[in-house]
Design a protein around this nucleic acid. Structure first.
Lengths: 339, 339
DNA sequence: TTGTATGCGTTATCAT
DNA sequence: ATGATAACGCATACAA
């Protein structure tokens, strides 16, 4: 593809006006006043720039200043609606601060996560927003020690001092459990992921701690764990097992697990909530449109996105500690008919 | 944030080995063989680079070569699952070619679309993948005349010669209509968007042309149009109108329209398919989990993504016409219980 | 086979 | 208030 009009640079403008590129640069980068460029000179420059169709080469500027105006976003999978919505909110916030964002999906794999982050850094992104994956502490720590501005969202590692914005998952599970018991259910199946990622671990801890706090007997609740990577189709069997063991409610600990579990229940023609009640973390179109609608816990994604960018921009602009450097946000129950 | 280890550059490596930066550059950019650098020299350079922890500054390279290795993706809204899935497929394909992608959501607004594209171009993306919006012909045409590699996906403008990969929407509607009539439905409400964007227009054309081809009488089908931007909540009223006028099936022309319409039908406790049958363009979790499941038409998104990147990479690498420069792909019906 | 020198477009330091 | 010029890190035409 040939470029027809070769690009016009500050040199062209300087030549056209018989002034120095220094002056042109100063006014065009918005530092005219700071350098006390006269008003008429400024205006002339601006006018000529427009007339010639000047566009700054942000690449050159970035090379000089060290700032690209681009953020790297690593989530688990952009095609998962949970992350898609999160990405949209992050996009909006980033844009408010004048940043563009490059995204990529880690598929929960540490090697891919590492490669993606390194690729972004080689491209000189100004900062990283990450959804950390299993076994990613070391690389994150390395990035941080290199001075990369980095914030994690949705999950965090307590062993690291990386700022984060996450849902208060412990409290969330506790809330859900209280609701379940208030509704009178007596034997609860908590379907979890077999992983120690903070978000899932705290959901489980919130559940078990809540059970103790509410004086539930051990026969009244069980925690089942599914493979984190969804490599085995274990959910069908698990659901059957739960059905066969007189549980009266299933508490799904996540979006995708809930959707899959629901799909299984539907296939088996289980009547909800009569034969089995259901409640799940995260909302989803599937939950809204299932009949009956599935009661669920909605995370405060907008707050997570806002706070994440707050932190990140502060780090990029060298204002550490202007904001408290991590926070957990409360979500809310969406009551429907399944529980 | 302070960077502790100042970055190591090819200069450092050259100094360390007492060779020229030219040589280092050649081997490190993978052009060692081309320039006939000796094997031992190459190995020494590579080893030292690794030892010193060298990372190429892609910004500098880009400034020099004019290629950033970044693609700009402008879709309507990343939080819409349709586009989220598309984005994921595009991400995968881009990665196969070694590209990263910056994304942004146009919200179907021409001004935003324009601003986003220009911002990406100022950042020197190597190419643009766009879902064109209403009134965007001019700016697209301008980009193209500037020699920007650009491919449109999902929709296209026949007035432009921009390569595209889209679903054969005309054929799709025809297929759906044939299925509807084969199933014996007699009075069809086609719920469309009031826009002349190619994808929606061709769905409508396929529908009306199909109706004529199948010798349907004009009383047997009606096209209803909703505001493209969803500014008015007209769908509730429209659904009621359709119910009151003895249609026996609704054909939703799109994802979001189908979901909203379904929501309304559910609120009104309409029994599907007895009181009203339903079929929709695009699949969705809502369609899968609704009871009854909604029959729908699935677009071949993977093929669209693949072809889009084929075209784009060929343009970037200056191989115009290696591929046929636009194509329409067939999708398929997913039969469920609603029709 | 390797080195020299220059430029990509911009910003920023020092002069004047 | 403005100009000259050296960087930023890399790639490449031309020499040797």
């Amino acid at each position: 593809m040939k470029k027809f009009n070769k690009k016009v640079t500050i040199v062209d403008i300087a030549k056209e006006l018989g002034v120095s590129t220094a002056m042109v640069s100063m006014v065009l980068s918005g530092n005219g006043r700071k350098h006390r460029i006269s008003n008429k000179a400024s205006l002339k420059v601006i006018e000529t720039a427009r007339r010639l169709g000047y566009n700054p080469n942000l690449l050159a500027r970035a090379l000089r200043t060290g700032k690209t105006g681009v953020l790297g976003l690593i989530i688990a999978d952009i095609s998962n609606p949970f992350f898609a919505i999160l990405a949209r909110l992050i996009e909006n916030e980033a844009s408010r601060y004048g940043y563009d964002v490059m995204f990529a999906s880690s598929d929960e794999r540490a090697e891919k996560f590492t490669a993606l982050g390194n690729a972004f850094l080689t491209k000189q992104v100004d900062g990283l927003i990450i959804v950390p994956v299993v076994e990613s502490e070391n690389i994150i720590s390395e990035w941080q020690s290199r001075g990369i501005p980095i914030v994690s969202i949705d999950r965090y590692f307590s062993s690291l001092s990386v700022p984060y914005a996450v849902t208060d998952n412990f409290d969330a599970s506790f809330q859900i459990l209280k609701y379940i018991t208030k509704r009178g259910y007596k034997k609860i199946a908590f379907v979890a992921k077999n992983t120690n990622l903070s978000n899932f671990a705290e959901r489980e801890n919130g559940f078990t701690a809540g059970a103790k706090h509410l004086n539930l007997k051990s026969e009244q609740y069980t925690v089942f764990k599914l493979d984190h990577f969804n490599r085995e189709p274990g959910i069908d069997n698990l659901i059957k097992h739960i059905l066969n063991n007189k549980f009266d409610i299933i508490f799904f600990s996540q979006n995708m697990i809930g959707i899959q579990g629901l799909s299984t229940l539907n296939k088996l023609n289980v009547s909800i909530p009569n034969e089995m009640a259901v409640i799940s973390f995260d909302d989803s179109a599937a939950f809204e449109f299932n009949k009956p609608g599935i009661t669920c816990f909605e995370q405060p994604l907008d707050q997570l996105a806002k706070k994440t960018l707050n932190y990140l921009i502060d780090m990029i602009d060298d204002r550490p500690g202007k904001n408290k450097d991590n926070e957990k946000f409360k979500g809310r129950l969406i009551i429907r008919e399944s529980c």
